[in-house]
Amino acid sequence: MIYLELFLSFLQIGLFSVGGGYAAIPLIQEQAVEQYGWLSMEEFADLVTIAEMTPGPVAVNAATFVGIRIAGIPGALTATFACILPSLILVSLLAFLYYRYKKMSAFQNLLSGLRPAVVALIASAGVSLLLQSVFTAGIPSVEGLQPVALVLFMGAFFLLRKFRWNAISVMLVCGGCSLLIGLLTGAVPVGAAG
């Protein structure tokens, strides 16, 4: 049953994305792309792009996007509820304990040990997204190399590292450059919309 699958899948995303924001991305890829095939890698890359461009947590954005595409509005509500449910239970409990005892829990020590693994998982998802963006169909090959995307990636990385640009500006510039280069090189003729 699709609602149960959505529920269990996003419950796991909510429960195991430790360290916020980007930590949810490898889990979404695992569940929605690899496990259930709800999204293609191309759609997943678009989803991460859209999530980065719009307000709100990546996991909530992904839950709504996947939920609606798989099972309409009820699907979106199911997936979103599932992904915040672990937080609702665990963090409410932590809030209660914090205000009762006013001290940080040992819980934090356990989770701090997870950080190196979370970094590695985000790196793995980041490299898959890079391959998806730079090579045709995401498979590394000399013929499939897309030079424009590679140059945009390197330019974006440079702006982020050297000049500490914020994410939204970098994405707007990348999107604009891609459109401009496409129009100038005739990859998409002017007036081809439809």
């Binding site: 980007y22 991305i25 890359a45 678009d46 991460v48 792009t49 980065e52 461009m53 985000i122 790196a123 998802a125 980041g126 490299v127 997204l129 890079l130 998806q132 963006s133 730079v134 424009v148 995307a149 590679l150 945009l152 990636f153 390197m154 974006a156 990385f157 982020l160 590292r161 994410a167 970098v170 994405m171 510039v173 990348c174 999107g175 604009g176 450059c177 891609s178 459109l179 496409g182 129009l183 990859a187 998409v188």
Partner: peptide, 17 residues
């Protein structure tokens, strides 16, 4: 085209993090 360019940007953002 815009999405394709932004994808390259997102990959850069994630790898920068």
């Amino acid at each position: 085209l815009v999405l394709k360019g932004m994808q390259a940007g997102v990959a850069a953002i994630i790898l920068s993090v």
